[in-house]
Write a protein that binds this DNA or RNA. Structure first.
Lengths: 159, 159
DNA sequence: TAAGATTGACTTGTCAATCTTT
DNA sequence: AAAGATTGACAAGTCAATCTTA
């Protein structure tokens, strides 16, 4: 598993840094990138997991019998089906998940959380929550949180 | 050049969706992902450029003689040097940039914007600005912009 | 024919090792 | 030795094509 830290920055504006609302956009990007990089770095350092792997564990741990079909899992994690095939390959090698046949349908494959995966997720989730608290929640007061939510909601992808 | 749309979503919380400030964090991620995906999709559809390629063009177009060394460019775009090598390879094939030797130092390579790259950037930058206006700026009023900036500033990566 | 999943070709990114020039 | 860049081996993502089962 690799280690990575990738701020997005620049990509954002286009030297239109003059307009105040455009600057807000840029700031949004920078903060997001820095937060994401930090959470990912911590997760890797302490649990040797990428956030994608963590997300897979998260969704499996919330699923009915800790099992999901490739299809469902791909949708939950928001990744292409073929991309997921590779991820699951490696996570299976790492002993975190297992592939199993599905009773009624011989086309389908179920991915299940192994005990090791279960356990790894539990500690990982504490790392993640702590990260969010430290780098985000703790820096905002109640009012900030409310305002931020309200503003972000206006940016709904609806269009 | 490929087409891609990748919301990050989920990855963010960890079923801690209860806490209001944690939800703000999640929303920040979702909005960022959706905005980024949209800008990238539009740039690809209308100019056949990824935002990374756009960013390369942007930095070259702002550089002194429209030239930067690989080193400097890699830093500006926030990408690894070796990653940039590949990007420049493909952008060179596409005729957008060119590699040139550097006068004083035979180790170094300069990347320059070709006329085609110049031209492509100019239209691309209009696409980009329009996207930011449409999907972001236009949805917020002055006060929102100010508030958002103020809140985001509290999340400074300083630590 | 459709659905479920995998494979193959490709872009993009990382790091460690390498090569050339200072 | 150190700096500038490239190379090679991987991980992660995309899409289009393929294979098997329904």
């Amino acid at each position: 598993v690799t280690a990575k830290v990738k701020p997005a920055e620049e990509v954002i504006d286009g030297s239109l840094a003059a307009d105040p609302r455009a600057r807000a956009w840029r700031l949004l990007f920078e903060r997001h990138a820095s937060l994401f990089a930090r959470l990912e770095a911590e997760m890797r350092a302490e649990q040797d997991l990428s956030l994608t792997w963590y997300d897979v564990l998260l969704h499996l741990s919330e699923a009915p019998r800790n099992r999901l079909r490739m299809n469902e899992l791909a949708e939950a994690v928001v990744i292409s089906k073929s991309g997921l095939t590779g991820i699951v390959d490696r996570m299976e090698s790492a002993g975190l998940v297992a592939r199993e046949p599905v009773a009624g349908d011989r086309r389908a494959v179920q991915v299940s959380l192994t005990p090791a995966g279960q356990e790894r997720f539990e500690t990982a989730s504490q790392v993640h929550r702590r990260g969010i608290r430290e780098h985000f929640s703790d820096r905002l007061d109640e009012a900030d949180g409310e305002m931020l939510m309200a503003i972000l909601k206006k940016l709904a992808p609806a269009s």
